[in-house]
């Protein structure tokens, strides 16, 4: 049995750990609220962008000179996975879940004979995938040290993806990230970016209704600026959901850690008291048997 001194030291150390996890939980909760607000504020733009793209895309998609960003390169050989994860750990299985989905995806694609490239946004995802797929990683973007997700960052990433597409480095681009369903539930999901999946316009709006719009300047020119913007907004949304999900997950993880530390302290304190009593009893027996011997 451990000595009293050792037990005391362990209790203090677990207590200070509990203080840290508790503080981290509070910080995560505050940051979560901010990230959630930011994610909600970005939603109207994304929704309206989708609506505009639906009417524009439907009228252009059929033509042979439709932009690459919309229809892809027409091939299905090289896949680019954009994996969005957090930059830091201590958030439960948050980063691992995305990493696992990406890994399954890479294996599946490679089994089907395709080439896979990975663009990792966030340090943890890059670290996770490097172990197994170091040769597939074609880029790594870290946002460590940034207080909040800025649209400019998403635009940079989108510009990088566009440049890769123009250089013919990939045919299909998929975004892998944690979808923020609620504070306690984040779902790792994959979303295809290029070729753009047009939102279902439904059978109610036949192509005739779409053609009613007038375009100024031409449809192609608007599409040429709208598509990169759409790509950026998709990446931005994924990054925001990732940030919100990260803090949600961290909050849950830290809450659990705090609770576990409390349990541990209780057990150790019980142990400590038992040992203390045992020592007293032993000393008493020694004194009594000593007195009897006299």
């Amino acid at each position: 049995m451990a000595s009293l001194k050792a037990l005391r030291a362990r209790i203090t150390s677990v207590k200070s750990t509990r203080k840290i996890t508790q503080a981290m939980k509070m910080v995560a909760a505050a940051k979560l609220r901010r990230a959630q607000n930011q994610a909600e504020a970005a939603r109207p733009y994304a929704e309206r962008m989708e609506r505009m793209l639906a009417s524009l895309g439907a009228s252009v998609a059929g033509s042979p000179d439709a932009p690459k960003l919309l229809v892809g390169s027409g091939q299905d050989k090289v896949h680019l996975l954009v994996v969005v994860t957090g930059d830091r750990g201590l958030a439960g299985a948050f980063n691992t879940n995305v990493g696992r989905l990406a890994r399954a995806r890479i294996r599946e694609l490679e089994a089907a004979g395709k080439t896979v490239k990975v663009l990792a946004v966030g340090r943890k995802g890059a670290a996770f995938l490097k172990r197994e797929f170091a040769s597939r990683i074609s880029g790594e973007i870290s946002l460590a040290g940034k207080k909040r997700v800025e649209f400019g960052d998403a635009q940079e990433i989108a510009a990088r993806i566009t440049a890769m597409l123009d250089a013919g480095e990939f045919d299909v681009c998929t975004l892998v990230y944690n979808r923020f369903r609620s504070v306690i539930s984040q779902v790792p999901s994959a979303q295809q970016l290029i070729p753009t999946l047009l939102p279902e316009t439904g059978a109610v709006a036949p192509s005739g209704a779409q053609a009613l719009y007038e375009y100024e300047p031409s449809e192609e020119e608007i599409l040429a600026t709208l598509l990169p913007q759409n790509l950026a907004i998709q990446v931005y949304r994924a990054m925001l959901e990732n940030a919100a999900g990260f803090f949600g997950s961290q909050m849950t993880a830290m809450d659990n850690a705090t609770r576990n530390a409390g349990e541990m302290i209780n057990k150790l304190t019980l142990n400590y008291n038992r040992t203390r009593q045992a020592n007293i009893t032993r000393e008493l027996i020694e004194i009594i048997s000593g007195a009897e011997a006299v």
Partner: peptide, 24 residues
């Protein structure tokens, strides 16, 4: 009339006229 930026929804209400700086 609605004005949205990627950051937020800035304006959403009924107006009489809006003058936009169109490309042309």
């Amino acid at each position: 009339f609605e004005l949205v930026s990627p950051q937020k929804l800035l304006l959403s209400r009924a107006v009489e006229m809006a003058v936009l700086p169109a490309a042309e």
